[in-house]
Structures are given as C-alpha cells and as structure tokens.
Design a protein around this nucleic acid. Structure first.
Lengths: 114, 114
DNA sequence: TAATTATATAAATATACACTTATATATTCA
DNA sequence: TGAATATATAAGTGTATATTTATATAATTA
C-alpha cells in the first residue's frame, strides 16, 4: 500500500469529532474559507459557548487553526496538519455549504474585516 | 465538483459510527475478508453482546452484510452500500489489521468453515 | 431429543458528550 | 478609562452511548 496510514486510535478519535453534524459542517465551511465564532453562532443558531467548545475540540487535535483579527478570531482548517490528508477526502465528499455564508452576506452579518 | 456527495446528516451519522476504535477496526478487517462474531470476541477481548451490538449498528446503516454458515454468522463490509464510496477512502488510509487474523490462525481459533 | 455452541436482544448501569448557565479575558471604541 | 463586543472557560445538567448482565433464539451434535 503506497497510501499513508494513520494510527487506528488516532483515526477513531478524529472520526468521532467529525461524527457531529455541527463540527462536520464547520470543517466543510472553513476548508476553503475562514469564519469567526459569531458567524458560526448565527449559522448554527447555537449558543456562543457551544460553538467555542466545538472549535476547541477541533483545535485540540490540530485540525483547525485560528487567527485573531482585532476583536474577532477567525478559524480555518489547518491544511498543515499531519491529519489533513486523512480528513480532506472526507470533506471533499460533503455537499458545498457556501449557501450558509451567502445567507449571512444577504443579511449583512458576514464579517469580512480588513 | 464531479465527486458524489452525501447528505450532511447521513455523513455525520456514519462518521460517528466509524469514530469508535472497535467498529473502525472491525470494518477495516472485513473490508476484504469475512469474520464471524466469535472471532471478533477473541480479537477485541470484548463480550459477545458488546460485539453483537456494534455489528447491529453497522448493519442498521447497511454498512455490513451478514451471511449465515451453519452455526456461524459471517460479517463483511457491504460494498454494494450506497455509502461504500464514502467509507472506502477512509478504510484505505487505515493500517492493515491482518496481523489480528494471523494471530487467530496461529492459535488455531480462526473459523474457516466450508 | 437433550446438551452444546453461536448469536441476538432487552434491561440495567456506568460513562462520555453536548449544551446551558455563569463568569472571565481580551479588544475596541466612545 | 469605562462601556460594549467577541471569545474562552468552568461548572452543572441532561442525554446519548458502550458495556454488562440476563435471557432468548437458532443451529449442531451426541
């Protein structure tokens, strides 16, 4: 097998994180874009702590990276992660979620600082 | 995007099932082989009901198929499943688990009926 | 046909997980 | 510098999930 493999325990841990609709949708959204916490709060109609806690789990495994810009913290998928090649084929099979961001833009609540 | 997509909710449900070390290892094992319940019990050092319940969940989503041969029921990944193309790239990135079956053969507890 | 072996299912229990509530920290702006 | 905004964290709570215990079903074999 030429393909890179990933330790079983690690793989299960990552898949468990992806096995949540909110986190999975988050990852798909920020695979090629960037979102801040308050945008997620609006998109998922969830509380701010709930969103923060989901992001924390993704960050703990190094799957996402954050970048502060003023008062906002923007999240995106960490394509430098050693597990990116593991999750990328999964994300690629998910339906595009850009309509969710389009909705924010329409409502004028999309944050595009700088 | 040319790739087939899968509904978000369904994808999360499947990934949640894969996000368990026992089930993930099971799937990897039976992607190209066939195993019966008692073999899993020995491989994972788990109780028989525990193994049966894991298999039930995989079967409920159609990810595995079963075939009775005498007193044994053999399980294998259902490559006819509409979700097989979703899980296959994941399984392909996992380390080979054949050593687990080799171990059974060495101990003489591998079931190879017929 | 009775005993044995393999598997499934149901109920009970213990643990893991997501979400809420409350609070802390950090940045911006008046 | 004080108020407002954005985010994080900690503690508490409720729900989901895995595992055990107990029992049922099905096939085999003596």
């Amino acid at each position: 097998m030429l393909q890179t493999t990933i330790e079983m325990e690690k793989a299960a841990g990552i898949l468990k994180l992806l096995g949540d609709k909110t986190r999975l949708t988050m990852l798909k959204l920020i695979d090629e874009q960037t979102c801040c916490v308050c945008e997620f709060v609006e998109i998922f109609q969830s509380s701010q702590p709930s969103i923060s806690q989901h992001l924390r789990k993704l960050k703990d495994l190094g799957l996402v990276k954050e970048e502060r810009k003023g008062q906002w913290i923007f999240y995106s998928v960490n394509n430098k992660s050693e597990y990116y090649s593991f999750i990328k084929p999964i994300l690629d099979q998910l339906p595009d979620q850009d309509d969710k961001l389009k909705e924010l833009e329409k409502k004028g609540t999309r944050i595009s600082c700088c």
